[in-house]
Design a binder for these strands. Structure first.
Lengths: 84, 84, 84, 84
DNA sequence: CTGCCATTTTACCGGC
DNA sequence: GCCGGTAAAATGGCAG
């Protein structure tokens, strides 16, 4: 590259990669935090496996709720009803 | 449970689950951020697939370095040498 | 199912499952073999943990080599070069 | 090492590692075979996920059966009954 | 929409 | 005998 030092292509690419890597580190840290919570959960005598299932079920329920909401809005829109 | 509302078992469990859920939301947000970076990457004309592979390779290299370090420490420990 | 015994659907499924189970038995036997080698390793005075780490490191190196090869091929493909 | 070429320590270690690696390759091949069967399973219109569960359940059942058998033999032995 | 990759979950193995 | 960590399996998600 000729315009040396002025955000050359390679430099930009490197910056992108480093941004991604920083985000992934953050993600890994949070994953650690979650693991720590499960350690606590276990230490309190709960069965971590069951708690995991609870979390998953709640997520599913949330998802379903949103689906339901979307469906409702679709219907509402279809009959010209403005929910907002 | 008699002492209703005062950190009863169910309450504690609920708090654990909510903590986990908040962390998972954070994680999801970061995952979104990463996706966004890839959108930028693509918009700058880079091949996202290649960038992903680069990121993965760098991660592998890091991982290998750690494994080698671990092996070294195992060796050290095996011969009774305290590295710290 | 009416045409009993003539490769009915259930029969085919059963055959699939049995094939899988036979493969898994084979796999379990090999896992045993590996364990036996580690017993020997230990009996010869080696530290099994170190040997395990060595095996893992060599595998990682192999894996990295393949990833690099894949990246190379992606590059080649990106510039319209057909390596094959 | 002085007694060069006569199964020196390093040589023996290398042989152990190579034996392990060969076994692990074999294991990997079988794992591939199993994956292939699941591809077939899917191609025949079965739900691979369900089939996996069936395989797992059968394994559990087998395991339980053996436990039961062991228990029976323990009881038999306890009352001086020779099952064989 | 299919296949692949990352994450998650389960099973295993060794150490205490 | 359990518990901790490590490897394998499985599921889910995302890119092509």
């Amino acid at each position: 590259m000729s315009d040396a030092g002025h955000n050359s292509s390679d430099e930009r690419l490197r910056l992108f990669i480093e941004r991604i890597e920083r985000f992934e580190e953050d993600k890994a840290i949070i994953a650690e935090d979650i693991k720590d919570v499960y350690v606590e959960v276990k230490a309190m005598g709960y069965d971590a496996k069951i708690v995991r299932q609870l979390v998953r079920l709640r997520k599913l329920a949330e998802h379903d709720r949103k689906e339901q909401q979307a469906l409702l809005e679709t219907y509402a829109s279809a009959i010209g009803l403005d929910l907002i």
